[in-house]
């Protein structure tokens, strides 16, 4: 039996481009994020020096344009005499990896639990909602800290730690969306004629909640990059020889008064990236889903 259903709204590419060109902030966001993504991908070719190469006799050199600077080290060196510019370029890779991986994982958890709660309803919904309430009542940083104590340090544990707290917002929005979509006439109709839940989800519900899901996930990347730096501050960051901006900022903070460049450049890198992600997210929201504001 065949019934025709209205197609869900999917923005087309040309419209997306036109909207982007008319939004300067969004354009800036896309440019920043793209630039950082390219830096991360091409780190091997862009970095002037080996980011791990240390030379204690060249430690804490100021940027090249300052007195005492060395033209080989454009942004100066850190406490081990390693080249800051190269480290920041390679750090982009780790920071983006953590950001994307943690968001992917938390979005996956959030999406599954949100769908489950919204579709199943009843006791399952109540249970998931109580867990979400509990998660919201425990301060995020505190929760991350305790999970980090269990998970240990390093890239994979860090992703797990951040994802373990970050899924909550996503699950809530997905559930709310599912509940409102579920009540729409055509979906109610499809249910009444016995469409299978999985097919229903894939064909009708997912496309309808996609836009708010994308917006929330994008915004989350910024949150995750900031969370990585806070965890580094609290002693649960990325381990050497892996390089991340949060780790550089956290280690450099004791030199802020004497060798400001060690912490300032990674700080700028983090700020710029999060700024780009926020601008990108804002534009996506305006474009895809104005009611989320």
């Amino acid at each position: 039996m065949q019934i025709s259903l209205p197609l869900p709204r999917i923005p087309r590419l040309p419209r997306l481009l036109r909207s982007l060109l008319s939004n300067k902030a969004g354009l800036a966001g896309v440019a920043i994020v793209a630039a950082i993504a390219v830096t991360a991908l091409l780190a091997d070719h862009l970095a002037p020096l080996d980011p791990l190469r240390r030379n204690l006799s060249l430690k804490l050199l100021p940027p090249a344009w300052l007195e005492g600077g060395n033209p080989r080290h454009l942004l100066g060196t850190d406490s081990q005499g390693r080249d800051l510019l190269s480290r920041i370029i390679f750090g982009a890779r780790t920071s983006l990896t953590v950001g994307l991986a943690a968001v992917a994982l938390s979005s996956l958890i959030g999406l599954s639990l949100g769908l489950l709660a919204g579709m199943a309803g009843g006791r399952v919904d109540a249970l998931i909602m109580r867990v979400i309430d509990a998660m919201l009542a425990i301060p995020t940083m505190l929760f991350m800290l305790v999970v980090a104590l269990v998970a240990g340090t390093g890239l994979v544990p860090l992703v797990v730690v951040i994802a373990a707290t970050n899924w909550v917002g996503c699950a809530r929005i997905v559930r709310a969306d599912v509940l409102s979509v579920k009540e729409m006439d055509y979906i109610a109709a499809a249910r009444s004629i016995g469409a299978r839940p999985l097919g229903l989800i894939l064909r009708h519900i997912l496309p309808n909640i996609l836009s708010s899901f994308v917006v929330v996930s994008t915004m989350n990347v910024g949150t995750v990059i900031l969370a990585e730096s806070s965890l580094s501050f609290l002693g649960f960051g990325i381990q050497p020889p892996e390089i991340s901006w949060g780790q550089m900022l956290s280690e450099g903070r004791q030199y802020l008064a004497t060798s400001w460049w060690v912490a300032t450049f990674p700080g700028i890198a983090i700020t710029l990236t999060v700024l780009g992600v926020i601008l990108l997210g804002d534009w996506l929201r305006d474009h895809l889903d104005p009611r989320l504001d």
Binding site: T153, Q239, P240, P241
Partner: peptide
């Protein structure tokens, strides 16, 4: 760094 120079593969672990 010195261990690397002498031919080791050294991995550092930093903990609170």
């Amino acid at each position: 760094g010195y261990l690397e120079d002498a031919g080791f593969r050294a991995q550092v672990e930093v903990l609170d």
